[in-house]
Write a protein that binds this DNA or RNA. Structure first.
Lengths: 133, 133
DNA sequence: TAGATTATTAGAATCATTCTAAACTAGAAA
DNA sequence: TTTCTAGTTTAGAATGATTCTAATAATCTA
């Protein structure tokens, strides 16, 4: 059994052709930032029959199972990240591309007081990039 | 001439009824996070005739002129902020509400290396809030 | 006040994402 | 294996925020 099937089995997701293809991609690319549009383009190229709805269904499911991390960059679109560790991103609008910022590349010497009755949830840091002119 | 008209004149924007109403709102609320949907609701309540398209046109124009700051929270929607200083936000998904984090409430002791050929653009920090359980 | 310019508007268009409900498939049980 | 059932996939419709279009209206300048 290949790794993709193994992973899917562990998450109680049936290893359909489409799902295996998606997970294979994730394994192959290892660390990658995925967009539904980018992924369907890649799979169509590989002659794998899959619909956009299935791409979304599966990326969302994989995120629910903790195999991917789902997040947003500006208003643009939904991204999925295979890097599950706490980390942040540079965004290069020119290439529509994200670059990881590992947690150890940023540290805070002062953090803001959380409002009463609330606790900190996920933290989103995006540093937008511009070309040096 | 009222403040709203003054501001619009400085930005070379004609002080139409709709624009004056929007800028009045901004002045009155002083520091506020605006959404097109919230704003149209408020203005309709005040019996001001305005269409959604006009709201968007004007919020975008005011952002272009530097009177508002435009940004996004998750994928949800476009927000406009009257606080023009560098600052960040808490987001309370339950109330669909933003809370400012002033720049002096956060400080970095370590910042990531900017990729070659690029420079830092805007920095987006959103700390999502959850209820204390 | 006229003419030119700029604004507003309703409704259509767009785009990413989700929903729907019908057709299909994998896996369990016999 | 066949059969059954729950889980999947799919095309296309629906959604929701935002932008576009092009017709109408308001403001400004001379």
């Amino acid at each position: 059994m290949n790794d993709a099937k193994e992973i899917l089995k562990k998450s109680k997701l049936r290893p359909t052709i489409q799902r295996v293809a998606i997970v294979d991609y994730i394994i192959e690319k290892h660390k990658v930032h995925i967009t539904a549009a980018k992924l369907i383009k890649y799979l169509k190229n590989k002659k794998i029959n899959i619909s956009l709805a299935t791409i979304y269904n599966n990326l969302n499911e994989l995120a629910d199972k903790g195999i991917l991390k789902k997040f947003y960059v500006n208003n643009d679109k939904m991204w999925f990240d295979t890097n599950l560790q706490d980390h942040y991103h540079f965004y290069d609008p020119e290439k529509d591309e994200l670059i990881d910022i590992n947690k150890n590349e940023i540290s805070f010497s002062k953090s803001p007081k959380i409002p009463n009755g609330k606790v900190k949830g996920s933290i989103n840091i995006i540093i937008n990039l511009k070309n040096k002119n």
